[in-house]
Design a protein around this nucleic acid. Structure first.
Length: 506
RNA sequence: GGCGCGUUGGUGUAACUGGUUAACACGCCGCCCUCUCAAGGCGGAGAGCACGGGUUCGAGUCCCGUACGCGCUACCA
């Protein structure tokens, strides 16, 4: 017997349809993610379509930003990218089909200057003025004649007077809207250019989209689109509207207001592991069913997310993305940062190492031996650093003393004061300690620890004093891994050198 | 203004078809560990579920109202 369920699932087709604004913002990324998860979960197809019907605002450059973001996040699409502008003829044909069918009409009124998007008071005034369009019931012959005479017009959808649109939303449930609350939207501009709501519907029908998963800010558009679906005689897809991701001030995310912080490339460039960012995004507005996860689990691999994802788990209320641009350390949502650190700490080396290499290369710290003769040493050093890293950038920043042979790393002022200069002992003891280290035939964590502790006892100083002084001498820092791990990683020659050098700084 | 949607600690979320002191994660504070910082372990503060009124033996969970927030309201997408 054929597996009917599997067949139904395999036919599921979803799409992510961003407009090319030059970058993929976190809200868009989450929409893409949810579509992708749904498609992967159901064994359906995930399609990318660029909504570039507003040609003035589109360019290759703008599209590239979207593609880059998708690629970084690893959201691979099965079809596309398609460009909506390539199908303008079809959209126009649909508009004329509706005109012929009497479901749309020509509006000869001259274009009005519109107020700025954010000028709410003017908008309100316009809304009050809204009256029945005089061309709505214009005689067909006259309309045809004026069009034939070359008079410019737009094609508007003729929203019926009585009744309401309705659809069952996968997230918000039954949605209804009275026809009288929907204006006669423009389908085709006076220059023949098709507009968004028309293009979307025609494309979604054409592409066989079964589930439209998009931001909640589209709910009003959906009512308009339902009208177009019906006028075109097409079956409605399943709609699912996602809650919005809000800025810390609870307003809408926007590049203009919030800058680069809302672009996913910022997270890539700031050393996020894509899976960590995806994990964080997935939990913004969605949660797995209780009982299907491990106790207190917050970390989910891609595979687990796919396994656990369901439309039912999506929330209705908006989520705040708590970034904090002014703060150098906690510049973005702390949970995202924590999650990234978790990934860095626990990811298998074969996945982590390829992400660190480019960072070291950028900083001029990379050597090919790290993948050859020095492989074991390198991996051990990375292991040391990963415990304290929050982003991939930290490997180059904190790792410099481990990767350079000379003294071309920073000495932190506070560390020098506290660990080297505060007490008089280091000045005389550090050179002596250097000699002890130089004399060791076996130079390991344990042998250096034994040597240092014996030396401290001999000189009647606390081991901690020497340990902290040595850490600053070797790394320039007051904080870092256990000293003897550092000593072993830095090696005998460099350790001896740096201990002597530090004494000279005092 | 109109239409729509939402409201659980600072943030993200949980709480089966209403049933004992509202749970978890991040963050915060403290303690332990310790050579520092992290990590880790343990503990703590922080919401009585926007507010008001109902229904009920019993409501965060159902109903009504109010407030607040958000979204949409283009010949943009």
């Amino acid at each position: 017997m054929p597996d009917i369920q599997a067949n139904v699932r395999a036919n599921i087709r979803v799409r992510f349809a961003p407009s090319p604004t030059g970058y993929l913002h976190v809200g868009g990324a989450r929409t893409a993610l949810f579509n992708w998860l749904f498609a992967r979960k159901m064994g359906g197809k995930f399609i990318l379509r660029i909504e570039d019907t507003d040609l003035e605002r589109s360019s290759d450059e703008m599209v590239r930003g979207i593609l880059e973001g998708m690629e970084w996040l690893g959201l691979d699409y099965d079809e596309g990218p398609f460009y909506q502008s390539d199908y303008a003829d079809k959209h126009r044909a649909a508009a004329y089909q509706l005109l012929e069918g009497g479901q749309a009409y020509r509006d000869f009124a001259p274009k009005q200057e519109r107020p700025q998007r954010d000028d709410a008071t003017i908008k309100q005034d316009i809304a009050k003025e809204k009256v029945v369009n005089p061309y709505r019931d214009f005689p067909k012959e006259e309309s045809d004649a004026r069009a034939a005479a070359g008079e410019p017009f737009v094609i508007r959808f003729k929203v019926p007077e009585e009744g309401k649109t309705q659809f069952e939303d996968a997230v918000f449930g039954l949605q209804e809207r009275d026809y009288k609350d929907t204006e006669d939207l423009v389908l085709l501009r006076s220059d023949g250019h098709p507009l968004y709501n028309l293009s979307v519907v025609v494309d979604d029908i054409e592409m066989g989209i079964t589930h439209v998963i998009r931001g909640q800010d589209h709910i009003n558009n959906t009512h308009k689109q339902v009208l177009i679906y019906q006028a075109l005689g097409a079956k409605l897809p399943q709609f699912g509207h996602l809650p919005l991701i809000l800025a810390p001030n609870k307003g809408k995310l926007s590049k203009r207001k919030h800058g680069e912080i809302v672009s996913v490339t910022t997270y890539r460039d700031s050393g996020f592991i894509p899976d960590a960012f995806l994990n964080f995004l997935a939990l913004l507005g969605w949660a797995p069913k209780e009982g299907e996860t491990a106790e207190n689990q917050e970390i989910f691999s891609r595979e687990q997310l796919i396994e656990l994802f369901s439309l039912e788990g999506i929330h209705k209320s908006n989520a705040v993305f708590n970034f904090n641009e002014g703060d150098a350390r906690n510049w973005t949502d702390q949970k995202a940062l924590w999650m990234n650190a978790e990934y860095i700490k626990t990811w298998p080396p074969e996945k982590l190492l390829p992400l660190i290499k480019p960072e070291l290369q950028k900083a001029g710290l990379w050597r090919d031996e790290y993948e050859g003769a020095q492989k074991a040493w390198y991996e051990n050093t990375i292991h040391l650093l990963r415990e304290r890293a929050r982003t991939l950038l930290d490997f180059a920043a904190h790792g410099r003393p481990y990767f350079v042979d000379d003294l071309s790393f920073e000495f932190d002022d506070a560390a020098v004061k506290k660990n080297l200069q505060k007490e008089p002992a280091p000045k005389t003891l550090l050179p002596e300690l250097a000699e002890r280290f130089a004399a060791l035939t076996e130079f390991t964590h344990d042998s250096t620890e034994a040597a240092l502790r014996a030396f401290a006892e001999e000189k009647a100083v606390k081991a901690g004093l020497l340990i902290n002084a040595a850490r600053t001498a070797l790394t320039g820092q007051a904080v870092g891994p256990s000293l003897f791990e550092v000593v072993a990683a830095v090696g005998q020659k460099r350790a001896v050198e740096r201990l002597k050098h530090a004494a000279g700084m005092i």
